[in-house]
Design a binder for these strands. Structure first.
Lengths: 193, 193
DNA sequence: TTCATTTCTTGCCATTTGCCAAGAGCATTG
DNA sequence: CAATGCTCTTGGCAAATGGCAAGAAATGAA
């Protein structure tokens, strides 16, 4: 029995037929991740193409000094996986951790490829997920170069308020490319306005 | 008559058969771009999936204040196109400009999709290009967050020395996320060592 | 509830980087 | 060759951000 939300997710893309959407969704298996547990740990190969139905996930890497750097946040309705590790079958440098209890649906790399072969249109869907992730990273990169930390904070607050309800400020700070100290100061200035 | 370099490019990927590599390459058309001319201008839809055989291309966007921000550099042997504009058929916010006289080979969006349908394996190749671009942007983003400007300069110098032979320092500066003034100072300090 | 731990804030000071303006160095053009 | 316009460098100063440490606040565990 597959998830109505998952079916809708595929249908809304308009890249697969309604019938195909049902069929694709039916190959996904349910998966729960309890708060603080990991969908993926660094050093392992990502083998789950995971649709997050409920919950919140943070992706992070460790820099040279051992500090955690948040690379992304995922809220419900998004596909969560480490692109490079998953498609290249290489070891991941990133961790994906549930910030709250999560529920979702996944398929493995093998299952995904089977779907690509059997469900022609699903490839376009898969590509669109990739393209979307790529584009948003490009936008983020540009804002990193052209905007101040306060502007980036402001944008994140307006476009992704849910992040502030779920994630710790220190995790948001490294996502914004600043220290938690700086974020704290920015917030102080910000509330004055 | 197709390019031996292009054929080799496909073969080396190991994602398409030698025979397919020949066939795929044969659908590409030659294209020259003279120095300072554009492969793509902002406001237009990217419709060329371009293999750069010789030359050097810079991609850039304009920020709010009208400053050019270099988003990428492309040297020979790379595929050059704006992912989001090309696949989503949307208007590009980026420009791709030849820094020196360039030669290469291209196919249109339509031709690419035809190839995807007729040459099964070519899809995997296309995906690998996408994944590669995504991964390197992720790495760049991480270095943007965790490293100082001088460290980023050092890495770029060691991993992509050709960029310094081709591009203007002010263009490299915005690629590194700093002003040309800062880059100049960093280089001054750097040569002392 | 109480204790321990983690997160967040704040102050102080150092460092990095940006902004502006001037000048030097180069290349292009007429 | 001279004039013009870029690019790059440099100096002075301001603003943004980081590092460290202490304390407050919030959270989680016993």
């Amino acid at each position: 029995m597959s998830s109505p939300k998952l079916v809708r997710f595929f249908k809304n893309s308009n890249l697969v037929s309604p019938k195909a959407a049902e069929e694709i969704a039916s190959t996904f298996s349910p998966k729960e991740i309890k708060k603080n547990n990991f969908l993926l740990k660094e050093g392992r190969v990502c083998d789950e193409y995971f649709f997050l139905e409920n919950g919140f996930i943070r992706a992070f890497a460790n820099d040279i000094d051992g500090n955690e750097v948040t690379t992304n946040f995922y809220s419900s309705g998004q596909v969560v996986f480490e692109v490079s590790s998953f498609f290249n079958r290489t070891v991941s440098k990133e961790n994906f951790q549930a910030i709250v209890d999560c529920e979702g649906w996944y398929i493995t790399y093998e299952q995904l490829n089977n779907l690509f072969h059997s469900m022609h249109d699903f490839r376009d869907f898969g590509r669109s997920i990739l393209v979307k992730g790529f584009s948003s990273l490009k936008i983020r990169m540009l804002s990193m170069i052209t905007e101040t930390a306060e502007q980036r904070y402001d944008t994140l607050l307006k476009t992704n308020p849910e992040i502030f309800q779920q994630a710790a400020l220190k995790h948001i700070a490294s996502y914004l490319g600043i220290t938690d100290t700086s974020l704290s100061r920015i917030r102080k200035e910000y509330t004055k306005k």
